[in-house]
Amino acid sequence: MLGFLRAVARFLDEKIGWNRIGVAISILIIAVALHVLYGMVHDLDFGDVTKALKATPIWHVVLASIFVAAGYFTLTFYDLFALRTIGRADVPYRVAALAGFTSYSVGHNVGASVFTGGAVRYRVYSAWGLDAIDVAKVCFIAGLTFWLGNATVLGLGIAYVPDSVAPIIPLPIWLNRGLALATLVVLATYVAWVWTRPRIVGREGWQVTLPGGPLTLMQIVIGIIDLGCCALAMWILMPTTPHIGFVELAVIFVSATLLGFASHSPGGLGVFDAAMLAGLLHLEFDRAQVLAGVLLFRVLYYLVPFALALLILGGRELWVNFRGRSHESGPS
């Protein structure tokens, strides 16, 4: 069986190419999501959405903004943790925070975050002597933290409320719970694997020593806090009736986020929104109120940080150019 799978993988790689397959999958996800989204909102009176936006208590928006800010603050530790993992303890937190915040803000909105976020990180870290391989290692460790956190939240959440993702991923409840428990077993196996002795991945000029057991647990905690803050922001912006538990909302939110990430659509546009609506409307939420909450979250989590990141990066470039010209015009 393993030999057959390898033969299929080799055939796909040689005859089609994994890049083309990835693009095709992204296009398929976006197309399906837009079709679903249209079916859910095409007959919606957007005047009702405007009313729902105006009716949202301002303190809900303020509290959601605080949790979004806390989520982005946690994101900065993805980079700090990665820098310490690859042995660059000389890079201070302020630089890690700058690279982490701007790379994720730009990557979230532009799409293809692996490349766009990596380019932003390289621009920031190259001033501290990191080369392209070092930045790739930072991206790898930060990405590992992201996936460990997501897998843990989904594993625990779906095991607790297995029917929460049924509207998004229509599988039997027993299968959802089984997959969640299998995910938790894989996570526990990975933690045990890195706990026993140092594990190195990569070869030749690109090698990374994976964080050990205790540090891997720290990665998971960082990821959970990040996702928890963002899910709390979304939970606060949701209608108060009917009631939805935080864990159920968190599972729907993380699932929608991952689908948006997989689509490579800028900001998960269309995909994230369709998944959120699909996951919530079966609970008899008012469509206009749900859409208003999703739109507010988009503003707080995507647009505002993106604008701030562009201002910060633009200001940094102006400062770097100004300092460069000052040195050139100074006494020799």
Rank of each mutant, 00 (worst) to 15 (best):
P211T: 08
R94Q: 05
T241F: 10
L28T: 14
P198Q: 13
G260W: 04
D134A: 08
Q219G: 11
F67H: 06
I158D: 03
G47R: 11
Q207L: 12
S126D: 12
G155Q: 08
L269C: 10
S265A: 15
T102Y: 02
V91P: 09
V185E: 10
A99Q: 03
A31D: 07
W319L: 13
G267T: 05
G39C: 08
R6Y: 10
L283I: 08
P170W: 12
G267P: 01
R203G: 13
L313S: 00
W128A: 11
L259M: 14
L80P: 00
A24K: 06
A274I: 05
A262W: 08
K137R: 13
L300D: 00
I200R: 14
E328A: 14
G87S: 10
V161Y: 13
I141K: 02
R323Q: 15
A275T: 12
R199P: 01
V247D: 00
A112E: 07
A52E: 03
A180H: 01
W195L: 13
L303C: 00
V165N: 02
L130N: 10
T196R: 15
G111W: 03
G117M: 02
Q289F: 06
S113G: 03
G324V: 05
W18M: 11
D13C: 11
R94P: 01
G212T: 03
L269K: 05
I200Y: 10
P239N: 07
F140A: 12
V135A: 08
A180S: 02
L37F: 13
A69T: 04
N19A: 12
T116P: 04
R84W: 11
